[in-house]
Design a protein around this nucleic acid. Structure first.
Lengths: 202, 202
DNA sequence: GTCTATAGTTCGATAGAC
DNA sequence: GTCTATCGAACTATAGAC
């Protein structure tokens, strides 16, 4: 800790600014989740945060700066309070994360809308999502390769394909879930995917 | 045919209006695919069509009316010149459609962006996509059920799950393909899905 | 660091001449 | 059916008082 864990420290100027930044990020997260980046305005975010629109621009110089900060903030949101158990399997970690994210209001809406928006011309979030998918595919490919070496992957199933498909399936299920939450069970469907792609434990 | 299939018929007032409507729909298709519904303006569409913005509103009374017409026009686009062979299998029809759509410029961009946008507040395309997913899931479930009755579905695989997952996988793959077209092969990945979910022909 | 005021665009949509 | 002109509103961003 570089700051003292006391009330006086929290009332300091730095802590105050940090809290306000977070308040703005929470507001922007909600607005972009509900209206998208293109559909949401800085005025919407400012209203949600209870500040003026110009005050908002004091903390984030432009709308695209705000977007990038929201995307990073979302990463922290989905990682916090989502601790992986030490001996947890890859499959269980994926299911747990799916269930975890479903409970955070707006997280899946934000991800789905901004991801699709990012393919439009000159969208500031494009690089973020391009790199995110690359990273995710590589990470999951390693996980499936490890499962393959343990003899748990169904013969004939390619690790890179399984990884790419898991990412695609997960995203697609979330989209359908957003439009029909009572019909789609994302976690259950992902479990079924692992049952088809992996060998039975027996 | 209610109109004569002659040059004079094509030059009639009705034909002219129809051609212009289609020109506008093509322009709107391109603009919405590149910028989304929220990001694209009526002026953009009018410029693309070479007419004034007010002239555009003469054919489509509002922006949301234009969107709905574009969505219907996209359905026609993806169906035309995509004839199903009489004895074609379900799997082959899916792969063929995937390859077909990939060749129509902007079709996948439009679908991906508008679909995700449709989950935002009060988006005019929301009902369209909700119903589209319901219809697709039902249709594919019937196809997988038929395969199951022929003994071609891998035991333990549920038809409704396979249908929902196929739709989700397909959509998710298209999103990844849009961001990394050289890395993602949608048709190949879909083929691999069928190989895992269906039993080998042998 | 917060605000009001506003610049400077652009938006969707309307009115009305031709 | 096409256009010019324009309305009223919303937008991002800046200037400057306090």
């Amino acid at each position: 800790m570089t700051t003292k864990d006391t009330a006086s420290a929290k009332r300091g100027p730095y802590a105050k600014a940090k809290e306000k930044r977070r308040l703005i990020l929470d507001s922007a997260h909600a607005v972009f989740a509900a209206k998208g980046y293109l559909g949401g305005s800085l005025q919407d975010v400012a209203n949600q945060a209870g500040i003026s629109q110009t005050s908002l621009l004091h903390y984030f110089p432009s709308k695209s700066d705000l977007l990038m900060a929201v995307l990073e903030w979302r990463d922290e949101l989905t990682k916090s309070a989502n601790p992986s158990a030490g001996e947890e399997s890859f499959e269980d970690a994926v299911i747990r994360t799916a269930l975890h994210n479903e409970k955070i209001p707006g997280v899946i809406e934000l991800y789905t809308v901004l991801c699709a928006e990012s393919i439009t011309n000159a969208h500031p979030g494009r690089d973020y999502f391009t790199e995110r998918f690359e990273r995710l595919r590589e990470s999951y490919t390693r996980s499936f390769s490890a499962l393959a070496q343990e003899g748990k992957l169904r013969p004939g199933v390619d690790s890179a394909w399984a990884a790419m498909s898991l990412v695609a399936l997960w995203d697609g299920l979330q989209t359908q879930w957003l439009l029909a939450p009572d019909t789609i069970d994302v976690a259950k469907a992902l479990r079924a995917y692992f049952e088809v792609v992996l060998l039975p434990e027996a």
